[in-house]
Design a protein around this nucleic acid. Structure first.
Length: 138
DNA sequence: CATATGACCTTGG
DNA sequence: GCCAAGGCCATAT
């Protein structure tokens, strides 16, 4: 099943997200070579449990705008994510719309595809190596 | 088989 | 900055 490696790739990438940094579903999808699978990245994260070993910092994944999806009122998912991010030292702000948002300008982690290990064999193998930090975009 | 939905993204007004 | 529309792929009904 291809879906299997998809989950593996998502977990592997999410685990590589450094502390005090956040990325977006779409970027994770891009990193694994499936830019159109942004929605499925969320599905994969929903699939795993808080007791997963090794643990996956799913809370470091937000939407491209840096906002945390509501996932419906009354759900503690968003609140839990905010709490986890704040515990990491990330500054989460609340917009007038009542949405939790993060300053991607500071905490955004968006490395170029191919510069991170997705933990699976891709059709095209890169020369491996070539790690460079992303742009500061200051 | 057709429709609706989802931890979404991008573009345009 | 926010709201609306179109696109994307898989799963559920």
């Amino acid at each position: 099943m291809d879906g299997d490696w998809f989950h593996t790739a998502v977990y592997h990438v999410v685990r590589q997200i450094p502390p005090q940094r956040v990325t977006s579903y779409g970027h994770v999808a891009k990193l694994i070579g499936k830019p159109a699978y942004s929605r499925h990245v969320g599905q994969a994260l929903k699939f795993l449990s808080p007791d997963a070993h090794p643990p996956v910092p799913w809370h470091r994944v937000v939407s491209s705008t840096g906002a945390i999806s509501s996932r419906g009122p009354g759900t503690d998912g968003a609140t839990r994510q905010r709490d986890a991010l704040v515990a990491e030292g990330v500054d989460v702000v609340t917009t007038r719309s009542g949405e939790l948002k993060i300053d991607l300008r500071e905490y955004g982690w968006f490395p170029a595809p191919g510069t991170v290990d997705i933990g699976v064999e891709r059709d095209e193998e890169e020369g491996s190596g070539g790690e460079r930090d992303e742009q500061g975009a200051d």
